[in-house]
Design a protein around this nucleic acid. Structure first.
Length: 375
RNA sequence: GCUGGGAUAGCGAAGUGGUCAAACGCAUCAGACUGUAAAUCUGCCGGCUUCGGCCUUCGUAGGUUCGACUCCUACUCCCAGCA
């Protein structure tokens, strides 16, 4: 079993430590999205320096290239990538939603590779086997992600996820026993709750998940707290899930508000591609809201983007220079901005953690929100 | 000097008598961004606008025509070849 200590708790909100074979994760924590085993534009060293505790890679993408067998032969995820800290893999379930070429059936999914058109078959067993070969510490069960307000469709995706869960668990347990026999490090499994934005479906899903022999939970198919029901769905889900296991809010964090709400309602880890993607596209987070570094007003701003930011970018470079790097499309600009955004969200979540310990969460959230969302 | 080619919005470049404020690309200006097919996508991009339109443009000056960026004349400038 994955060891998870809760250090302090208030209602659903808690501070804890997830103990993985590759180190501890102090929670709540923001996990960097490293889909193809790289946090885009940022080196592992830079990730460590900006305070990232863990990264999350994607099974589907690593099946496409370079293949789980190669990574296994290369010594597994930590050894092969040189990211020696805690790691997660997502199952590939999200790609059923994000890729239009996915054909879903009762057993699994057939994807068409965007590299060469090859058919890529995935199902719970294949995902589990691939994740064990890749060798991240924490795996996600193969589920069906969906983004719909059509209750029938959402219920169908949930049902499918539920049907697949025992297969995920069985295969995971088989591989775990095999690994143990071979003296290999432990790897852990999170089940993923579905049910969209429907209270009854979420409840049904969470109640089922709660009884399963898994190490923790992913909460899937939620996207933004701009949808008002989302906060309530997170809350009611975590009220049902067992308190003593960690919960990962899958893919949410394109707005800092998402992180506050997630933590407030009992989520322990987060991942989102937004900080790095938005950075590459010129949108940078500051305490006073998001800015676009490409805007003409930064042409001659000789101060850092955020003078109070402790990131490598803000400590060393001014906005005018960064603006220039974007206007001429120099890749270093994207690296600097990605470091800044990633540091921003990592720090926000770290401060959420500290504020929970200090009993100042509400004030911190209030102050942050007032500044960030003042407009 | 001669011969030929050419001058279109910030740049490049379509358009060869009406459907042209003028394709397309770039640049500009702005917006978006979910468990990443995203260093991507969208909008704007002559002036004014109550967003329905109105006005001024296609080197310059004339002309032909109901009508010209498109045809004619002259001029200016550019390019290539020849002297």
């Amino acid at each position: 079993m994955l060891k998870f200590d809760i250090i302090k708790q208030k209602d659903l909100m808690r501070v804890g430590v997830i103990h993985t074979p590759h180190g501890d994760i102090q929670t709540p924590a923001f996990v960097g999205a490293a889909t193809r085993a790289s946090v885009k534009a940022i080196t592992h060293t830079q990730m460590r320096e900006l305070g990232s505790q863990a990264i999350l890679a994607n099974t589907y993408h690593l099946i496409l290239a370079p293949g789980p067998d190669l990574i296994e032969r290369g010594g597994g995820f930590a050894e092969w990538t040189s990211w020696h800290g805690p790691s997660f893999t997502d199952s590939g379930g999200f790609q059923m939603l994000s890729l239009t070429d996915a054909k879903i059936d009762h057993d699994g999914v057939t994807f068409k590779s965007h590299y060469n058109g090859d058919k890529i078959r995935m199902n719970p067993e294949i995902s589990m086997q691939a994740q064990w070969k890749i060798g991240a510490d924490i795996h996600m069960a193969f589920d069906q992600a969906i983004d719909s307000t059509d209750k029938d469709l959402v219920a169908k995706a949930m049902k499918r996820t539920h049907d697949w869960l025992p297969r995920n668990i069985k295969e995971h347990q088989r591989l775990a026993a095999e690994a143990k026999a071979n003296g290999k490090p432990e790897q852990f499994l999170y089940a993923v709750v579905q049910g969209g934005l429907f209270e009854d479906l979420r409840r049904e899903s969470a109640e089922l998940m709660a009884t399963q022999p898994v190490d923790g939970y992913g909460i899937g198919s939620l996207y933004t707290t701009e949808t008002p029901e989302t906060a309530n769905i997170i809350k009611l889900t975590n009220e049902i899930l067992p308190n003593d296991k960690p919960r990962h809010l899958l893919g949410m964090g394109s707005e800092p508000r998402d992180l506050f709400i997630g933590a407030m309602y009992g989520c322990d880890t987060f991942d989102c591609v937004a900080p790095t993607r938005q950075a590459r596209n010129g949108a940078l987070y500051t305490p006073n809201g998001r800015i676009n570094i490409k805007n003409a007003k930064y042409r001659e701003m000789y101060a850092p983007i955020d003078p109070d930011c402790d990131c490598y970018c803000c400590k060393n470079y001014n906005a005018s220079y960064l603006h220039h790097l974007y206007k001429v499309d120099e890749i270093t600009g994207k690296t600097l901005a990605s470091i800044h955004n990633e540091r921003f969200v990592v720090r926000v979540v770290d401060q959420i953690r500290q504020s929970i310990l200090d009993d100042t969460f509400e004030e911190y959230m209030h102050d942050f929100m007032a500044k960030y969302y003042k407009a």
